[in-house]
Computed example of a mutant assay.
Amino acid sequence: MGDEGPAATPVRRAAAWAVHAFTASGAVLALLALFAIQGHRWTEAMLWLLAALIVDGVDGSLARAAHVKTFAARIDGDVLDLVIDYLNYVFVPTIFMLEAGLLPAGLALPLAALIQVSALYVFARRDMKTADSYFRGFPALWNVVALYLFAAGVGGTVAAAVVSAFVLLTFAPIHFVHPFRVRDYGAWLPALACLWAAATFGLLWGPGPALRSALLVLSSVAGLAIVAMGLWRTWRGASSAPAG
């Protein structure tokens, strides 16, 4: 007998639609971040964007577990995910950088335009990911860029250089990992991603200066280690590990 998959039941259908609703909550988080930006509540805005990043990090696993393509097939989860990701990874962080004055005044709008256009390339390309679930080029994580520019308090010249570099890396033949899809590093990669999220959350929560510096270092080191895993994939080529 062939494998026909799990049988459709009201509970399974409800679970699949609940996962879609969980993904859609990212749009609400984007709205909350925009309201915080409007009120110049910078840390609150970053916390909403961090929450959206966590939702996006786990909703794919939930979708596969709930068989959303079978039990809630009316909704294209991939399209839903891309729309919300563009809001939370690109559009809202760009508004954050503009409103918070993180970019130099004379270059702020041109840099913001470059972010938008380069990110469209990422979201529209058909080969965004490799067969082993690595992103090709910088995957438009402008929420993370904005977070570090804000947390580190760098000047406008440095911020302009950082933004320009990541725009160029969007088109570079390098790889970035997906923390919960890449299987090359076993449990180490998702554990490192969780460490990064915890350190970053603590950093934004407003600790004292000494603890803030330590958390900034821990968050940065964890983030650089994740980036290094992707660069190692570029150097060594694809492995035989199955995609997530």
Rank of each mutant, 00 (worst) to 15 (best):
A160V: 07
A15Q: 02
V144N: 10
D3R: 03
P242W: 12
A33Q: 04
H178G: 01
G106T: 11
F201T: 10
L218Q: 06
A238M: 11
V145L: 13
M128F: 03
V55L: 13
A214D: 08
F123H: 13
S61M: 15
L111I: 06
E44S: 12
F180S: 06
A214I: 13
E4D: 13
G156I: 05
W196C: 07
A100I: 09
A8D: 11
N143D: 10
R126I: 02
L98R: 08
W42G: 02
A151L: 14
A30N: 07
R12P: 05
L203N: 03
A52Q: 03
G206I: 13
S61R: 07
F180T: 06
A228P: 03
V177C: 09
L204Y: 00
F180V: 13
C194K: 06
L149Q: 12
A8T: 00
V83N: 15
I115N: 01
A119N: 04
A225R: 06
T234S: 14
A161V: 15
L231F: 14
W42C: 11
G137D: 11
V154Q: 15
L168P: 05
V92D: 02
G223T: 09
A187Q: 10
R41D: 15
A18V: 00
P190F: 06
V55Y: 10
A172K: 07
G230D: 15
Y86R: 10
I37R: 02
M1V: 14
F22Q: 04
L102E: 04
L195G: 11
V68W: 01
V167E: 01
P207H: 09
I115C: 00
T130F: 00
A14G: 15
L224C: 08
V227W: 07
L109I: 13
L107K: 11
W17E: 09
N143Q: 11
L216Q: 00
L195W: 12
A105Y: 04
L215Y: 07
P104M: 09
A65F: 04
I84Y: 12
L47D: 02
A199V: 05
T234N: 14
A112Y: 05
S118P: 10
V154A: 10
L120S: 14
L216I: 15
R12E: 00
A24Y: 09
L189M: 04
Q116R: 11
A222F: 02
E4L: 14
A187E: 15
